[in-house]
Design a binder for these strands. Structure first.
Lengths: 260, 260
DNA sequence: GAGTGGTCTAGACCACGCG
DNA sequence: GCGTGGTCTAGACCACTCA
C-alpha cells in the first residue's frame, strides 16, 4: 500500500504522471496535500485543521503518518500544535507575535517587551515597478507595485527607515491608513486585509553610510554608518510577495542572530 | 514502564532526586543520556555511535524512542544520520564544511565555491582577559586567554579583520602556526588539536565606522562603514568557548540570513 | 468524560552502502 | 546478503483542554 498514489476524499481523481518513478515517502505526499489545502485556503489562518485521526481517515493512512507530515509543517511554522485543542494554521493576526521578522533588539536587557514603535508613513503610492524590483518580485518590468516609505521610532528615537514594495495586484487598494493602523503588526494586516501570509524571508545585510536625506530622517549626522537590511519575504510555494529595504540605526540596538 | 527512571548499562546506579516530580518524556531522557556520552567523549567527532537497535537494548526502550531522541540531536547538528551506514558524531574536521558559521557571501553568483581565503595572523598571544571578555566567556577577570588577531582576504582583497579570545586553559599552547595551518577550517583545528567542538553561536551585528588603524588593515578609507559582527560560540551544554569580534567589508559581499 | 495532541511499543517492510 | 537508517502501521496509554 505505501508509496502508491494517494486516495483523497475523491479517490476517483487519479492524476498520475506515469513517467515519474521518483520515490517519495507517503508522509511527504500527505504533507504536500495538506500544503495544497493550506494554499487553497481550505483552512484559514488561525483556524483549526481537522484532527490527526480525521486526516488519517481522509487520506487512508495511519495516524502516525499524518503525524509526521504535520510535524514537518509545524517545524516550518506553517502549523501550530496545541495539545488538547488541536492543530491550527499559523497566523500573524493574533496574540503578540509582533515584529515577526525583525531581529533588532535593544543593547541593554534583551527584553523585547512592549516598546511599541511609533510609525510614520512618509509615502504610500502605486507606481510602476523599477526594473530591479520587478525582477526580484518576479513581475514584468513596469507592472504596478505599491511602494511604502516609513520611519519607525523606538522610545522616541527614529531608528528604522524603510521602503516596501508589494505586488500591485495582490495588494490593490492598500492605503497609508491601513499601514498606520495595525500598530506594529504589518504582516497581520497583510493577512487580514489581503489574505497574504508570509512564510519565510531572506535578508542581505550590509554596512552603509547615511546620505543626507536618510541622515535627516533618522536624526543622525550624514555619513553615519547604518545597517542596510534588504528583505525578500515569501508566501506559500516560495512566491516572493514583499521586498523591503531598510536602514537601521545600530547605536543603541543591534541585529541579533542565532547560528547552529 | 515509561517515564520511570532509566536503566543504563549499570542499572545499579539509581541516582534519583525523589523531590522532583517533573515529568519528562522517555525520549528526552534518552537524549540527555546520549548527550552525556557525547560530552564525555565516549564517541569522538566523526565516529559512528552505536546503532539504534544497540542503543535501544542498552537503554531498555524501543527503537522508536531512541529514534526520536536521535532525530532531535540530528536536528541540532550534533549527530549526522547516514542511511545504510549509521549515525555519526558531527564534526568540523572532515570534508568541506569550511566556514561553519561564516555567512558572508559574494554579491554576485551566490556560489561560495572555493574562493579560499588568505589568512594573515597579526597577533597570537596569551594575555589576561579584559573584564568584559572574561564576563562573556564566564571566566574570572584576569584569567588567561589566548588572543588572536587576523585578517582574512578573499580574492586578494582584505575583507575581514577579527579578534578572537579563547579560554587559556582549554587552548593552552595555541600557536600562530596552528592558526595559519588548517586553511579556513579554524573550528576543525579546535576539534583536532584541543578537542573542543563548537555547537552553536550567537551573533550581534552593527554598522560602524572604520577607525584609522582598522581602515589601513582593510584597505579602505578611514570612516568607511563596516559590518561589526560579535560572535559568541558555545560547546556542549551552552558553555561559551570563543568570543570573536569581526569587522567585515560589505562593499562586494553581504551577510546572508534566512528567517522563518 | 469526550476529544485532541503526545508518547511508547512492536513488528513489518523498504532503501541504501558495502563487502 | 547483511546491517544500517527510513517508512508505515496499529494499538495502548498519558496529558491537556473544555464543556
Amino acid at each position: 500500500m505505501p508509496s502508491t498514489p494517494l486516495p483523497d476524499d475523491t479517490p476517483a481523481a487519479e492524476a498520475q504522471a506515469p513517467a515519474a518513478p521518483a520515490f517519495s515517502p507517503l508522509y511527504q505526499q500527505i504533507k504536500g496535500l495538506i500544503l495544497q489545502s493550506l494554499e487553497a485556503g481550505e483552512w484559514k489562518p488561525g483556524e483549526a485543521i481537522p484532527s490527526e485521526i480525521d486526516l488519517a481517515a481522509r487520506f487512508r493512512v495511519s495516524q502516525g503518518t499524518v503525524r509526521k507530515a504535520i510535524d514537518e509543517l509545524a517545524a516550518e511554522n506553517l502549523l501550530v500544535r496545541r495539545q488538547g485543542k488541536g492543530t491550527f494554521v499559523a497566523t500573524h493576526a493574533e496574540q503578540h507575535v509582533q515584529y515577526r521578522f525583525l531581529k533588532l533588539v535593544p543593547d541593554t536587557g534583551d527584553r523585547e517587551t512592549a516598546d511599541p514603535a511609533e510609525r510614520n508613513i512618509l509615502e504610500c503610492r502605486r507606481v510602476r515597478a523599477p526594473a530591479e524590483v520587478a525582477r526580484t518580485l518576479r513581475l514584468r518590468p513596469g507592472d504596478a507595485v505599491v511602494q511604502v516609505r516609513r520611519v519607525l521610532a523606538f522610545a522616541g528615537e527614529p531608528t528604522i527607515l524603510e521602503d516596501l514594495w508589494l505586488p500591485g495586484t495582490a495588494f490593490k487598494g492598500l492605503t497609508a491608513e491601513q499601514m498606520a493602523g495595525y500598530q506594529g503588526a504589518t504582516y497581520a494586516m497583510f493577512e487580514l486585509e489581503f489574505g497574504v501570509r508570509m512564510v519565510r524571508a531572506e535578508e542581505k545585510l550590509r554596512a552603509v553610510a547615511a546620505d543626507p536625506g536618510q541622515a535627516r530622517l533618522l536624526a543622525v549626522p550624514a555619513g553615519s554608518p547604518l545597517l542596510s537590511v534588504e528583505r525578500l519575504a515569501f508566501t506559500y510555494n516560495d512566491v516572493p510577495m514583499e521586498l523591503r529595504r531598510g536602514l537601521y540605526r545600530t547605536d543603541k540596538r543591534h541585529y541579533r542572530n542565532e547560528l547552529s
